[in-house]
């Protein structure tokens, strides 16, 4: 089975700048990926982002090691560490855990700036929608049902079946000639056969290009995300009032095929991210870790 197309690239980064203060660490151990960030005095020092295998603890450990290496730091340099995310309790090196909604809220303000009011976390398995007050607190949140999970994973599978790199899949779906309906609005396990089925010639007039096929799949994911985001603010979905600006986080935040379609349906443009939006949860955890040592 081909696997490399659905495997998005893992990343490591360090600012390279000199930094002051006391380094802390935040890690977000998701179902599909793990991020570890090192922050100091409110600045982002380094991070690592990688795929989870079967051992969440080991994945978190690897993420931290990579981030430290990039920053030129050792474990002993880190004053304290907070873990969040699905597998937070497996991060043995964490001094404390924090739940994901709070971390996403805090992190979002860092990543998107103070205007952000709604955060849509589009992950490998689940979608979370968070509403914030204009100060530092979570006002409301919704998490997707167990049903309709697995959308991010579903896209990995589509990428592998079609043999199109996952990093291109979103952009290409925006060049579709047709504006197809979503391949499903219920389930990612229905999505992939129906998406692949579009390659079959139906009626002669129903020829689908590869971009059209991708469009149908991306639309599915976008539509399911709307099902969760919309619950935050149940007004007319077409004129949904999100009280301010929206930020996308999570793996699918990097997929314009999904994010642009959500924007189109909501009739708005999301806020640009100042940092890789996938780091939002880990940044939030790190900010909490900073508060642990500098309580306000």
């Amino acid at each position: 089975m081909v696997k490399e197309f659905g495997a998005w690239p893992e990343t490591v980064w360090a600012s390279g700048d000199r930094f002051g203060g006391t380094p802390v660490c935040g890690t977000d151990v998701g179902t599909t990926s793990v991020q570890a960030v090192i922050m100091s005095d409110g600045a982002l020092v380094a991070y690592a982002n990688l795929r989870c295998g079967y051992d969440f603890g080991e994945a978190a450990e690897t993420a931290l090691t990579r981030a430290l290496k990039a920053a030129g730091l050792s474990r002993g340099d880190i004053k304290t560490c907070r873990a969040t995310g699905f597998g937070r309790r497996r991060a043995a090196f964490a001094d404390a855990t924090a739940e994901e909604i709070t971390c996403h809220g805090l992190g979002a303000r860092y990543v998107f700036g103070p205007d952000v009011r709604t955060v849509a976390d589009l992950g490998g398995q689940r979608t979370k929608a968070i509403r914030l007050y204009d100060w530092d607190r979570v006002r409301d949140f919704k998490i997707s049902d167990k049903c309709a999970a697995g959308m991010g994973r579903g896209i990995e599978r589509i990428a592998n079946l079609l043999e199109i790199p996952i990093s291109e899949i979103g952009e290409r779906s925006l060049s579709a000639e047709k504006d197809p309906e979503p391949a499903s609005t219920t389930c990612c396990n229905f999505m992939y056969p129906e998406t692949m089925g579009l390659l079959r010639q139906g009626f002669r007039e129903d020829e689908y290009s590869e971009n059209d096929v991708l469009a149908a799949a991306m639309f599915t994911v976008a539509w399911r995300a709307l099902g969760t985001i919309g619950k935050l603010s149940p007004l007319d979905i077409g004129e949904i009032s999100l009280d301010g600006a929206l930020g996308f986080t999570g793996g699918l935040a990097k997929n314009p095929g999904v994010t642009k379609r959500i924007e189109r349906e909501l009739g708005l443009s999301a806020l640009p991210a100042k940092y890789d939006p996938r780091l939002t949860g880990a940044i939030g955890a790190a900010l909490l870790a900073e508060r642990d040592i500098n309580p306000r």
Partner: peptide, 13 residues
């Protein structure tokens, strides 16, 4: 009444 998840091409198959 709900077009989605019909998998029309799958139906033809």
């Amino acid at each position: 009444g709900d077009r989605t998840d019909m998998d029309e091409h799958g139906f033809l198959d």
